[in-house]
Computed example of a mutant assay.
Amino acid sequence: MAVTPLKILTLLPWPDWLALAGFFVAWIGYAVFARRRSVSSMSLLATTNHYRHLWMVQTTWRDVRVVDGVVLQNLSTSPSFFASTTILIIGGLLALLGTSERANALVQEIPFAARTSAAVFDFKLLVLTGVFVYAFFRFTWSLRQYTFGALMVAAAPDFRVFERGEASREEFADRAGRVLGLAAESFNDGLRAYYMSFAVIGWFFSPLVFAVGSAGVVYVLFQREFQSEVLAVLKS
């Protein structure tokens, strides 16, 4: 039997569609808001980008850049770890789709959990899987960008070349710092997806919990990126 758009729309009650739409509006809207607000009010990412630029400036003064390679390797371990973990999560969710009827029955045993059909439960699992698929792509892209940054540091001219004025310290620091900043931004996007996945988990209880969870996650993200104590220390 063919699946028509009308059947897809009638798959979920309208409160669920509203909660799902609010989830994506909150996620995408906050990402746009954070990027624009960081121009006037330094976010945690923008502040650390300043330190990345200073780091690359210091790199141009070093004769031996072993410490820079060690730091870059340590930074790349985080996206590598999360990418590997995300693959396991995606595999678990896909396996759960094969036993969705039993999983749905188990969820319905939880107090206050929504009573839904197996098709609706599968749809919610697919949305949750999609969130982690997005996170996987962002983590792996972050890992690749850290690799590009390591190549730039390894290919940097000797510090004597900078001293003779044959290469610009600021130009190198701007390019290399920007690449590392983009890697950090991709990693940050992946972490946001992890945070937002907790809101999707609330959807298995009710659309109200889903909506409140989406708003709560956005609030937590805002507090950490714009009003956290570590940000105040970094800006001081």
Rank of each mutant, 00 (worst) to 15 (best):
Met1Val: 01
Met1Ala: 01
Met1Lys: 03
Met1Gln: 01
Met1Glu: 01
Val3His: 02
Thr4Arg: 02
Thr4Lys: 01
Thr4Tyr: 02
Pro5Gln: 04
Pro5Ile: 01
Leu6Thr: 08
Leu6Glu: 14
Lys7Pro: 05
Lys7Thr: 13
Lys7Cys: 04
Ile8Gly: 03
Ile8Thr: 10
Thr10Ile: 04
Thr10Ser: 15
Thr10Leu: 12
Thr10His: 15
Leu11Pro: 05
Leu11His: 08
Leu11Ser: 09
Leu11Val: 04
Leu11Ile: 03
Leu12Tyr: 11
Leu12Thr: 05
Leu12Asn: 08
Pro13Val: 00
Pro13His: 06
Pro13Cys: 00
Trp14Leu: 08
Trp14Tyr: 10
Trp14His: 07
Trp14Gln: 07
Trp14Thr: 05
Pro15Arg: 00
Pro15Phe: 01
Pro15Cys: 01
Pro15Gly: 01
Asp16Ala: 00
Trp17Phe: 06
Trp17Gln: 02
Leu18Gln: 06
Ala19Gln: 07
Leu20Gly: 11
Leu20Thr: 11
Leu20Gln: 07
Leu20Lys: 05
Leu20Met: 11
Leu20Arg: 04
Ala21Leu: 13
Ala21Cys: 10
Gly22Phe: 13
Phe23Thr: 06
Phe23Gln: 09
Phe23Gly: 07
Phe23Lys: 05
Phe23Cys: 07
Phe24Thr: 09
Phe24Asp: 08
Ala26Val: 13
Trp27Lys: 13
Trp27Arg: 11
Ile28Lys: 12
Gly29Arg: 09
Gly29Gln: 11
Gly29Tyr: 03
Gly29Asp: 15
Gly29Phe: 02
Tyr30Leu: 08
Tyr30Arg: 08
